[in-house]
Design a protein around this nucleic acid. Structure first.
Length: 268
DNA sequence: ATACAGGTCTTAA
DNA sequence: TTAAGACCTGTA
């Protein structure tokens, strides 16, 4: 196991924040996370965390997954002292980090997220993993399901995922899987592209519009300048930024501010 | 009951 | 180019 002390890192906030649906609250201070073939348990008391994995796995994977080397305190410090709303939002969600999640998983997750609520998105993802993912067992004997590869979903009937409660989004996911498997949209290429270019390619996927593309850019490709605008952000924009969000001031990390605002609007 | 969830696509002016 | 409608489904 690995012990760290870290500010601006809060598992509860990250778990609730609606960017990751493969993180589960196991008990008051204990969370589990599934990423790829990995299963992790993390415990948090204040700013002290225990990662139940070896040093190598922490250094090579989880540190980056949770974006632990980035200076979020610096981002918050740069907030316009006159912008009370953003100061409040950032203070409220100051433990949020933008995770580095799997690209294909984020494509599917945010296709499902549209016109949907967080509780039901979570259930959809669980259903897909249990139905089409691989069942693995941890060294301590706990079973969990991986997120299915595109190949496991391509070729399904377009409405097959309605049995996983996706509703009309089923065909979006099945068609996206087809586009990825055929190479029409190449994930490896996507990973090497700057924000605008990656966004444009993502928009070619059926069911991916501007908002979903931005979520994928932010949560998988770690383009922190992506600023997804959904109903809640829209509301905050009209309510607090009638003359536009001051993205110049937060250039390159607008997406971090977006997360503070989103979380604040949803849970304050 | 009816509106609303981290929207997008289709169709019609 | 813009704007209304349709779309699955659970919750309040």
């Amino acid at each position: 196991m690995v012990n760290i002390t870290k500010d601006n890192f809060n598992l509860a906030q990250i778990c609730e924040s609606g960017q990751c649906f493969r993180m589960f609250k196991e008990s008051e201070n204990l969370y589990s996370v599934i990423a790829g073939n990995r299963y992790l348990e993390v415990e948090q008391q204040g700013n002290k965390c225990t990662f139940y994995c070896d040093e190598t796995e922490y250094e090579e994977f989880w540190k980056n997954y949770f974006d632990l080397d980035r200076d979020y305190a610096g981002y918050i410090k740069n907030i316009d002292p006159k912008d009370e709303y953003l100061l409040d939002a950032a203070a409220f969600g100051s433990g949020i980090r933008i995770l580095n999640q799997d690209l294909w998983e984020m494509i599917v997750t945010f296709l499902i997220s549209q016109q949907n609520n967080i509780t039901r998105i979570r259930r959809c993802i669980n259903n897909i993993c249990e139905r089409y993912g691989e069942k693995l067992t941890t060294s301590s004997g706990k079973a969990f399901y991986t997120f299915p590869e595109a190949g496991a979903l391509a070729g399904l009937k377009e409405d097959a995922l309605m049995e996983c409660n996706l509703g009309y989004r089923s065909k979006y996911v099945v068609r996206a899987a087809g586009s990825v498997v055929s190479g029409e949209v190449d994930l490896e290429t996507l990973r090497g592209l700057p924000y605008q270019q990656a966004r444009e390619i993502l928009l070619k996927l059926y069911g991916v519009g501007g908002k979903v593309a931005d979520c994928i850019c932010l949560f998988a490709l770690h383009h922190l300048e992506a600023f997804p605008i959904d109903t809640h952000i829209n509301q905050a924009m009209t309510g607090h930024y009638a003359s536009g969000f001051p993205s110049d001031r937060y250039k390159g990390y607008e997406g971090v501010m977006q997360q503070y605002i989103f979380y604040y609007e949803l849970f304050r």
